[in-house]
Simulated scan of single mutants.
Amino acid sequence: MMTNHSFADLGFVSLVGAGPGDPELLTVKALRVIQQAQVVVYDRLVSQAILDLAPTDAERIYVGKQLDFHCVPQSQINQILVDKAQQGKRVVRLKGGDSFIFGRGGEELEVLAQHQIRYEVVPGITAAAGATAYAGIPLTHRDYAQSVQFITGHLQKNGAPINWHCLAQSNQTLVFYMGLKQSGHITDNLLQAGVSGDMPCAVIERGTTARQRVLTGCLLQLPHLAQQAESPALIVVGQVAELHQKLHWFQP
């Protein structure tokens, strides 16, 4: 559906990745864009410290989501972005981590493009990269892992099954986003696909923040570790997870 507005009449939307939690991990461009915002549409994982970087008179709209509870449906979020831009506002759509990695940023941009609204994308540090770095767990390592895969713990929209045998290939690191409640399912399927029960794993809770906590063990222990953790948390499965004990440096 096309609108009757020309580009000159419309505002501008910046899709900004806020990083995994530590405000100092914002990019220079993200900071500048936030400081120029007239409207900030933000998610649950965006910290108050980052929100405070926006002008005091900027409108703040919370659209946070969490497992089993969606404060604002995605269709309504899309409409908010369209409406505010069509009012001529400089809108910052602020998401935790990176907007293009399990952040539904692409879906939101499709709606903006449909309405001929100008936009830009400011990448952020995704949780997998930030949280593992602060935990002293390298995603790749010449001696342990030559590749890494990011997997969402939520079912895909189209219900397509996960190829567990592909994930079970050796010499790679697996990072599961939003997987705490699915930890038993993840464990069972990896074991059935051939991953050893002794494979090191880690659960990183609230990574890069003052409340960071890292729980380590083996794959057989993963469901127990996940029960001890609170969201937001990442699950890391792979030989690199055992390096946490040697390389951890961050003291919350």
Rank of each mutant, 00 (worst) to 15 (best):
163 N>D: 14
147 S>C: 09
156 Q>K: 13
130 G>P: 06
163 N>P: 02
151 I>S: 06
145 A>V: 12
156 Q>C: 09
131 A>Q: 03
156 Q>V: 05
151 I>F: 03
126 T>M: 04
153 G>Y: 15
136 G>W: 15
154 H>S: 14
151 I>G: 04
155 L>D: 15
164 W>Y: 01
146 Q>I: 08
152 T>F: 10
150 F>M: 13
150 F>P: 13
134 Y>R: 02
141 H>Y: 03
136 G>M: 06
165 H>Q: 14
139 L>D: 14
151 I>V: 15
150 F>H: 09
142 R>V: 10
165 H>S: 12
134 Y>V: 01
154 H>M: 11
154 H>Y: 15
163 N>F: 01
153 G>N: 12
159 G>T: 00
152 T>Y: 04
129 A>N: 11
129 A>M: 10
160 A>I: 01
149 Q>W: 13
149 Q>H: 14
158 N>D: 11
160 A>G: 03
144 Y>W: 12
139 L>M: 12
161 P>N: 07
127 A>F: 06
148 V>I: 15
159 G>A: 02
142 R>H: 11
139 L>A: 10
130 G>D: 08
140 T>F: 11
126 T>K: 02
146 Q>K: 11
142 R>E: 03
152 T>Q: 07
129 A>S: 14
157 K>M: 04
141 H>T: 05
138 P>A: 07
137 I>H: 05
141 H>G: 01
147 S>V: 11
156 Q>T: 06
159 G>D: 08
157 K>L: 09
161 P>V: 02
138 P>G: 08
152 T>M: 05
156 Q>E: 06
162 I>N: 00
142 R>Q: 10
158 N>A: 09
158 N>T: 10
162 I>T: 11
148 V>W: 11
137 I>R: 06
164 W>D: 04
135 A>V: 13
140 T>V: 13
154 H>F: 15
159 G>V: 02
140 T>Y: 14
130 G>F: 06
136 G>S: 08
164 W>C: 07
146 Q>E: 11
156 Q>H: 12
148 V>G: 10
137 I>D: 05
